[in-house]
Simulated scan of single mutants.
Amino acid sequence: MKLILYSHAVQAGFPSPADDYKEGALSLDDHLIEHPAATYLARAAGDSMEGVGIFDRDLLVIDRALEPVQGDVIVVALDGELTCKILDKKHQRLLAANPDFRPIPILNEQSLVIEGVVKASIRYHRKQPC
């Protein structure tokens, strides 16, 4: 489905009279999903990633085809539990984006599977049904 994309940004202050001009159509699939067969969605839970703009109940767009690099936000299965964290390859750890959470060291004896790179997150500003 293609949606209308306006050529001017939406002001969070006073509106501009030029905001009536349309730039064209935009498909959210084309914009958010680079590898459709390798992309899935999941809901964020908790507040450990608020520092990078991921809040409780946000929708994560996760791409398994992307190779994780230093600083990427990733979803990992760590000893069987899924978590969303920042990858710190340099120091072999996973980082929260909230100072209330300690780094998680990546130890050799742990089972760690990278489930994908978080390409985008979608925040709802209206309460969503469960």
Rank of each mutant, 00 (worst) to 15 (best):
M1R: 12
L78I: 11
V61M: 05
I33C: 04
S16M: 11
K22Y: 11
V69D: 04
N108W: 02
L41T: 04
A42L: 13
R43K: 12
N108T: 13
E50G: 01
Q110E: 07
D47V: 07
L112E: 01
E109I: 02
F14L: 15
R93N: 06
L87P: 03
E81R: 12
V113C: 05
I74R: 02
A37T: 11
G116I: 00
S121A: 10
Q128N: 01
F14T: 15
E50M: 12
Q92I: 00
H31E: 14
I114K: 03
H31S: 10
M1N: 12
M49R: 06
E81H: 13
D20C: 15
A77P: 01
G13K: 08
A45M: 11
H8A: 10
S111I: 06
Q110D: 12
Q70V: 01
A25N: 12
C130F: 11
C84L: 08
Y21R: 15
H91A: 11
D30C: 09
T39D: 14
I104W: 04
T83S: 13
I4N: 04
V10Y: 08
L112F: 06
I114N: 09
S48H: 06
G46H: 06
S111E: 15
R43E: 11
I86H: 05
L32N: 08
L82D: 09
L41K: 06
A37W: 03
G51R: 08
L87N: 01
L26F: 05
K119T: 15
A9W: 05
A96E: 11
K89F: 11
H8C: 10
P68K: 07
D29G: 10
D88I: 00
